[in-house]
Amino acid sequence: MAEAMLAAATRGAGGAAADPVIELAGVRKTYRTGTVEFEALRGVDLRIDAGEYVAVMGPSGSGKSTLMHILGCLDVATSGTYRLAGEDVEQLDEADLADIRNRRIGFVFQQFHLLPSLSAWRNVELPLVYGQVPAPERRARAVAAMERVGLGDRLDNRPGELSGGQQQRVAVARALVGEPDLLLADEPTGNLDSVSTRDVLALLDELHAQGRTIVLITHEEDVAQRAQRVVRVLDGLVRGGGAR
């Protein structure tokens, strides 16, 4: 089910686009601590079609990271509807959601989240390990992903032996190794210098040109402007750019 679900978003009759990859309607997210409630999202409507490159922008505390977690099936909405390639996420069981997170969505985070004891290529292969891909294929695909991000000569280096920019490129390679339909990047340049930032953004541009759907979470205007469309989030609401 999960294997076919996002692929369906990119085809309809005669190959035309069908359902959007992402469609949110009235999505709310409330966090509770004892008797205290905080509404991080307050009724978000958002549509993202296959092949789009969308930046979600907002200041700290605006709700943009909460939105990313819901889009990536890392968290669930308190209310409202989230359809991923036409499927109501609330109707999927945990096995399907786990499969989507591992195979159909690539994640890139500000903090890299690399395992320090593993070499770069072994970090990259991890989604394939969880997906029970045979070892020889895992190695070949991890090496290809590393070469794709320009680190073919750093396969055996551990994260501590790499610069911040190189570590983020390893994280991008890991997100790409499963050939996901959707790439979610949460502040991917937040810990990088200007040169590494340009490299990572150029890589996202290349991936978008190849047809991938990319959602980039950022609070930086110059980073957001690299995308096709900017969605602005403030106080838990989409204030602009939510619909085509």
Rank of each mutant, 00 (worst) to 15 (best):
V54N: 05
E87A: 15
R32I: 10
A2H: 12
R103N: 15
E87D: 13
S196L: 09
F112H: 05
V230Q: 13
E52G: 13
S194M: 07
Q166K: 03
V231T: 07
T189H: 02
A209S: 14
Q111E: 09
E187K: 04
R169N: 02
A173E: 08
V124D: 11
S194C: 10
V124L: 12
V44F: 12
V223H: 02
E161N: 05
A202W: 00
E23H: 12
R212H: 15
T30P: 00
G211T: 11
E39K: 09
P116L: 09
L237D: 03
G34S: 14
H69R: 15
R148A: 14
V233Q: 05
L74Y: 07
A243F: 07
L184Y: 04
V133P: 00
V233R: 00
T81W: 00
R11Y: 12
A202S: 15
L176Y: 09
A175M: 10
A140Y: 02
V36W: 04
G12V: 03
E137A: 13
P116N: 05
I22L: 09
E3G: 00
V170G: 05
R104Q: 15
V177R: 01
L204P: 08
L182F: 04
G240E: 15
G80L: 14
L192R: 03
S60N: 11
V44R: 08
V44G: 12
A227K: 03
L118T: 00
I48G: 04
G236W: 01
N102H: 05
E179G: 03
D96M: 08
A135V: 12
P136C: 07
L67S: 06
A18P: 00
R122A: 08
V143L: 02
D93R: 13
R122K: 15
